[in-house]
Design a protein around this nucleic acid. Structure first.
Length: 490
RNA sequence: GUCGGGUUCGUCUAGCCUGGUCCAGGACGCCGCCCUUUCACGGCGGUAACACGGGUUCAAAUCCCGUACCCGAUACCA
């Protein structure tokens, strides 16, 4: 049987890392099996669903490269399908109208809770005579459709969260749950999540539902619906939850801490690479051999299996995430990163132009690959290429430029540098040594003030690269400027 | 409360199904050392864990029972 899986987000917010991971696992399982990945938007809750959310979810999926084969299908546009299935169940007497008000039920539930009892619907409306029902319908009393849940147990087809209970639910604990919102005979209420979901999974031929384990009890209800409808049940794989500091990571947490946003789009804006997000998310509840942690998407497709999933909650380790991003920065290389860094530079007001073209940027980015961890680190790391330093890092100056002759040294270096045609490792070292050696100084004693002069900082990549990317002329002028600055400020 | 799941280094985890090769492996972090014109990168080394209590067995991280703790679900939301 060919595998058909789906990702079915509700558009009540952005795509968060948990949802992205669910999407990823479904996508991987489809690709691994040469199956079909379907996208379905569960927007039956019109109150909370927004088009903006849908757009952002699709956008994030595209960014991650999780392409879908069918859809997106919108449940809000499939009312006829649900209505037809409801009608069938009504004709067969498997569902019934329940006329209690929301308030009545709420009160009953609270009472039960206060008494420490479990609450399930008491079937009051099921005991109404046909005449009483007709009477209420005529009077226009609003009702919801409830499933007449049979006695006995419901066994769900679970592949992962299997335990001693073997996923058998006592139907009595589920009660006759509601299938629709409140409506009238002329205008039935809209079908609710569980009903739409079960119907769509069946109609769309879903073979394996992969979703968060917070859906387990829904699975029992959906299985009951499927049984009533006479549809076969897909198998279910309930993923362990993603936690952060022990608590379920949900979009309700928002992007409260800007350093650790929960949405995929904010991670992207924060400078995380899509390769990192995919790889890191894959490891949240799945592992290969316990040794390998870096996987290309192709490898993931090949190696991923729902059978290798973990049952315990996966904790989101920010430090490791960040580390993985720095790994990918290096792995992707200067050309790719230069391209991706561009929007971040522009956002920081740093624009290419003149001799600073894309190729130049790749050269400038290359040595920074080892010190930056996020794309957003690059604007600051590269800023000195775009703007000559106007101030120098005080600590670095103190450490390297405290000797009174530093200004003279810099002027000598500038002079020597003028004669250098093209800068190479050798010519640079010769230049520095031509100043250092006569004075009996070590290489670093001269090189470090030069670094500060050029970049304003005590830390940067190799000076040869810096001068190469800056140009000799610009370098000379910066060194002289720093010498002057030292005279005034020391 | 009830139902379901979980519990291995500071952190993320492998191993558990199919007991022995595990005085428990990898990674992040941290700490040393090396490299080095600084920072970083890299290389080498180190640190550190089977929740607790019983049981089964020649042998248990692995199987069974109990306890504790954590997480989730308990809607006319999805």
């Amino acid at each position: 049987m060919t595998v058909r899986v789906r990702f079915a987000p509700s558009p009540t917010g952005y795509l968060h890392v948990g949802g992205a991971r669910t999407a990823l696992f479904n996508w991987l399982w489809a690709r691994h099996n040469g199956g079909t990945f379907i996208l379905r938007i569960e927007d039956t809750d019109l109150e909370r669903s927004t088009d903006a959310s849908t757009d952002q979810i699709l956008d994030s999926l595209k960014w991650l490269g999780l392409d879908w084969d069918e859809g997106p299908f919108f449940q809000s546009k499939r009312g006829d399908v649900y209505r037809a299935h409801l009608q069938k169940l009504a004709d067969e007497g498997k569902i019934y109208r329940a006329f209690e008000t929301h308030e009545e039920l709420e009160a009953a539930r609270e009472k039960a809770q206060a008494e420490g009892r479990d609450w399930v619907y008491n079937r009051a409306s099921l005991r109404l005579t046909p005449e009483e029902v007709q009477e209420k319908i005529r009077a226009g009393v609003p009702f919801v459709w409830r499933l007449k849940v049979p006695d006995g147990q419901t066994r769900i087809l679970e592949t992962l969260m299997t335990g001693p209970a073997n996923n058998v639910f006592e139907n009595s604990t589920l009660g006759d749950f509601a299938l629709t919102r409140a409506g009238t005979e002329d205008n039935w209420g809209d079908a609710l999540f569980n009903f739409c979901c079960a119907v769509d999974d069946a109609v769309m031929g879903i073979t394996n539902v992969i979703r968060g384990s917070d859906h387990i009890t829904n699975t029992a209800r959906q299985t009951l619906i499927l049984n009533a409808l006479g549809y076969p049940s897909p198998t279910y794989t309930h993923l362990p939850l993603i936690t952060k500091e022990g608590k379920k990571m949900s979009k309700r947490d928002g992007d409260a801490d800007p350093r650790f946003p929960v949405s995929v789009s904010a991670r992207r804006d924060r400078g995380y690479l899509k390769e990192t997000v995919i790889n890191f998310l894959a490891l949240l509840g799945w592992s290969w051999d316990g040794q390998q942690e870096i996987f290309t998407v192709e490898e993931l497709v090949k190696k991923f299996s729902v059978n290798a999933l973990s049952k315990s909650n996966a904790n989101f380790d920010e430090q490791k995430f960040l580390h993985m991003n720095s790994l990918y920065l290096k792995q992707l290389g200067p050309e790719v990163i230069a391209e991706r860094v561009l929007p971040f530079l522009e956002q920081a007001g740093l624009r290419l132009g003149g001799s600073k073209d894309q190729a130049w940027l790749a050269r400038a980015v290359a040595p920074e690959l080892e010190r930056c961890k996020l794309l957003t680190d690059f604007p600051e790391a590269l800023r000195y290429y775009f703007e000559a330093p106007t101030t120098y890092e005080p600590k670095a100056v103190e450490k390297a430029c405290s000797a009174p002759e530093t200004g003279d040294i810099l002027r000598e270096v500038a002079e020597a540098l003028k004669g250098v045609g093209t800068i190479t490792q050798e010519s640079f070292e010769a230049t520095i040594n031509s100043v250092a050696t006569p004075r009996g100084l070590g290489f670093g004693k001269v090189a470090q003030p030069v670094r500060i002069a050029l970049t304003g900082r005590g830390a940067s990549p190799g000076l040869t690269e810096v001068i190469e990317n800056l140009g000799v002329e610009e370098s000379v002028s910066r060194i002289l400027a720093c010498a002057d600055w030292l005279v005034i400020h020391r």
